[in-house]
Design a protein around this nucleic acid. Structure first.
Lengths: 192, 192
DNA sequence: TTCATTACTGTCAACGTTGACAGGTAACCT
DNA sequence: AGGTTACCTGTCAACGTTGACAGTAATGAA
């Protein structure tokens, strides 16, 4: 019968290119032309697979949310084998790209466009909430004596620092800023 | 002789409207039409006073930098009369708009567009560096025993948290997130 | 009053982005 | 081999944003 559909793979590829562009240029700056170039396809294919712009944005939102949730799940998994805050930061701040650096940037790019696309807010919040929750769970385990409020605050603070890392990198900030932020995160963990 | 020039005032008004729009919609979303509407003038006037789009962006960058530097200076001034970290956080996290909430948002909006406008990066970094430096000076004074590295890290961490506050607000994050971030900042100060 | 200068408006052309679709090509199945 | 379906490209129209400029109104000085 028909030719086999590439829709799942192609959609994934395109959404990944889209995420890359959003991480780099923001949602408005991620034009279909750029996305197509990044994905190595012609522009009309974007429409073919993902529909019009609004649908593309919706799909991207889902894609970023899924990717972020995956990170959260993996992290959760890793953390079960870890006993100290510093080991945790070793993972979170690893330079070796174990954590996709586009994720935080894309998250920021989307959240910067909430003014024009209010429908994105909910998913972004939920994704972040899950991330924070995993951190919270971890800290509650390794620091059972800490009050829940402190644990919450530390988890929230480290999440915020984590999210801002890549936007600072985009500014070509001196590299010691990253290490100082890591130290700040470290200090937070030590308060537990 | 000539009709008196309104250039200084009008330019200021327009740039302020521009900052508002950038804080809300990002740089790309802040179209001349929106800025003009926000400022209550016709679009061609923007060009009349500020030139073409690139020049407008340059002027806006300067405007935001000036406004942020003013905040930094005021804060520096306030801090000379303050002796504890918590008093400081009281100012920084005040809900009563003592600190223009558009500032951090506009800063984020600009820094999100660095991919398309690399020339913005330098000013943004410098502005942030000054802010951090003021915090650093303050903490070094009230916690003279703390090591410079710790002071630096705390200042950097709190700055990052401060900058991210308004973008979370734009997401309609539950209000306790703000209080948790404040608590995180508070924990940071207590490590000194 | 008249003149010089600036404030402001109306309007159109140029450009980039998106939407839409016709038509060609490639793969799979019977 | 032929038919069916999906992949992919070329192309044009519509829309929004920006650039540009001519022309009018207002103000203060000579």
């Amino acid at each position: 019968m028909p030719r086999p559909s590439l829709k799942p793979q192609r959609s994934e590829e395109i959404l990944d290119a889209y995420m890359t562009c959003v991480a780099r240029y923001g949602l408005d700056g991620a034009t279909q032309e750029r996305v197509a170039a990044e994905a190595g396809v012609k522009r009309p294919l974007l429409r073919h697979y993902l529909g019009n712009r609004d649908q593309m944005i919706g799909a991207l939102n889902q894609h970023v949310a899924d990717a972020f949730n995956n990170l959260t799940l993996e992290l959760d998994c890793h953390l079960t084998q870890i006993e100290t805050g510093d080991q945790f930061l070793e993972i979170l701040f690893a330079e070796d790209e174990e954590i996709d650096p586009r994720l935080a940037a894309a998250w920021q790019g989307l959240s910067a466009s909430v003014g024009d696309h209010p429908e994105l807010a909910e998913a972004l919040l939920e994704v972040l909430a899950r991330f924070v929750a995993v951190l919270e769970k971890f800290f509650a385990r390794v620091s059972p004596d800490a009050t829940p409020e402190r644990v919450k605050a530390v988890a929230q603070g480290i999440s915020t620092i984590f999210l801002s890392l890549d936007s600072l990198a985009a500014l070509d900030a001196p590299s010691n800023w990253r290490t100082e932020l890591r130290r700040a995160a470290s200090l937070l963990t030590e308060t537990l």
